[in-house]
Design a protein around this nucleic acid. Structure first.
Lengths: 143, 143
DNA sequence: GTATTAAAAGAGTTTAAACTCTTTATATCG
DNA sequence: CGATATAAAGAGTTTAAACTCTTTTAATAC
């Protein structure tokens, strides 16, 4: 349903919200170690997040990633659009192109219910919400 | 979330329930044309369904696929296990291995709700249910 | 200004799903 | 029995996601 890239992006962004500040940047090394995600692969993903202004980065010694003013308030759907393009959500469980309410597949209603529920969560939850749960110790970013 | 193979398998099996009988078999040609699914790819999928006794087949002139006594009563989860192996449902949205209720990711509850709802649909709906909807004209197997 | 550190960028490789093509086995019909 | 039709089987190819490696750019510290 979603790419691994999306999961990695959410975890990394959440980690940066929790631990990064302009005067205390999180390096790619720290990130990939803390989250147990392949270093260079995560590099690509972070690059993309920076390009889309989800967060900031600087190179050089003490360089790394840190939040900007928008970061913590971004919702999970906005991140999904960046990594997966949001087409994900328009797919039909039976693989029918242009399956819709007028000409639905037999699973359209059931799948739609599931999808819409999750969509609502992604729309309302922000990176800050994820960070809060992790900070509180009620949720985790690694196994 | 699910493979295309699964969608194709469900549509094909439903079609066979609707249109196939031992004395009126559905050929692969008819199936792939009616469902607009690649001929040979569907062949592989059908082969797998026959091997798992979801339906029957015979070769030769007037050969093709037709339901057996179990077919129409099979639920959608049983088909999923055949095509996708059911690991699909244990995956974590954030890509964390062994994400679970004891040590959940911050999306565990939301995703779980979505997943469980759909799981329940797959468990309760049978191929006959799909066929009924299509037969009734309230749902479709092609766009 | 030079060395160093860390992200950015680009160019691979790997893997698995999706899809194609060809050959073989088997059932039916004349 | 021979011809034919159709699924089974096997061996590709293609595509995209996931992941790796190397080089370049830029920021900092000395």
């Amino acid at each position: 349903m979603f790419s691994k890239t999306y999961g990695y992006a959410l975890r990394a962004a959440t980690y940066v919200v929790l631990h990064g500040r302009e005067d205390q940047k999180v390096s790619l090394q720290d990130l990939s170690a803390a989250l147990d995600v392949p270093h260079h692969f995560l590099g690509k993903i972070m690059q993309d997040l920076v390009r889309h202004e989800v967060l900031e980065s600087t190179k050089g010694p003490n360089g790394g990633f840190y939040p900007n003013s928008r970061t913590s308030g971004l919702n999970l759907l906005e991140i999904l659009k960046i990594t997966d393009g949001s087409i994900v959500f328009s797919t039909c469980l039976l693989g029918i192109r242009h399956c819709n309410a007028e000409k639905p597949c037999p699973m359209h209603a059931d799948f739609g219910r599931c999808r819409d529920g999750l969509l609502e969560s992604l729309r309302t939850k922000t990176l800050q919400d994820l960070a809060d749960e992790v900070g509180r110790g009620t949720a985790f970013l690694v196994r």
